[in-house]
Design a protein around this nucleic acid. Structure first.
Lengths: 144, 144
DNA sequence: TTAATATATTTGCCTCACTAATTATTATTA
DNA sequence: TAATAATAATTAGTGAGGCAAATATATTAA
């Protein structure tokens, strides 16, 4: 593809991703959800497969290790998750939802899904599939 | 659109935007470009329309004001831009490229364009247009 | 003209991303 | 087994984004 002409995508991607996060965060705040969107991502993943070690959890959620460490710190401080010693590897922790964390995920999942839906007004399922394909292609093109 | 099923876009958007930025930043670093991708965005915009005040520049680049202030601080510290007093409004500064800043933009623009192109392997112009449309629609759907 | 309001920029505080380096532990190999 | 390498998690430093509040100056209205 030509060069200069196609440089704007990084700007569009960046600002759209930021707005998507910002919009969700404001809705979270307005509902006094008391959690960040990144923290929610971790909770939601733990709800699907609890008791992950941090490395796997980082991989699953696309966070790097230092970032994941800090997010888990914050979640533990809020009493939503806890670190447990790994049965066979003393370098590792597994992270699991507390009761309070489970409740949070269950009570809020529908609301979050509704908030997320807003972005797709005026767009079709085909758009959604196209977008998924394009984003994944870009992601893989830039494999590190 | 249905709910839960369509919630993954925020994750895909976020991780793709991050990888796009990360890839460019690593290439910048490898070339000893000595600048961040966000700083480059500001320089590039100034090159198109020099002597913007900070508010307009923030609007143009999609940065919020505090962030723009800090990026301009760093660019000034590097001697690539300078703040000039606004002729008629003493609250404002205009920002302009120094000679060194202009050189930087001119010398590096082709390289940056080449770096940016990498993301579009295996994708068509139609994909590009679709993606632009979808991202802009999402952006406007979440108008703040 | 004075008072109230609006605007441009900056500062402080918190969260997150990326890199490099550190610590503790486990696995490998000489 | 002893030395080396690899892995899991953390810490430190820098850049950036978001929000709220502060400062200085302009604009508007009473």
């Amino acid at each position: 593809m030509a060069t200069e002409k196609f440089s704007m995508y990084s700007y569009l991607l960046d600002r759209t991703a930021r707005r998507v996060k910002q919009y969700a965060q404001r809705r979270f705040n307005a509902e006094e959800f008391d959690i960040t969107v990144d923290q929610w991502l971790i909770l939601k993943n733990l709800n699907n497969s609890n008791n992950q070690n941090q490395s796997d959890l980082a991989e699953l959620t696309g966070k790097d290790h230092p970032t994941l460490t800090r997010i888990v710190d914050l979640l533990c401080k809020k009493g939503l998750t806890e670190r447990c010693i790994h049965p066979t590897d003393r370098r590792s922790f597994t992270v699991r939802l507390t009761e309070s964390g489970k409740e949070k995920v269950e009570n809020w999942s529908p609301k979050v899904a509704e908030i997320r839906t807003k972005a797709w007004e005026n767009l079709s399922e085909e758009d959604y599939e196209n977008m998924k394909r394009i984003l994944n292609t870009i992601y893989n093109n830039l494999d590190i």
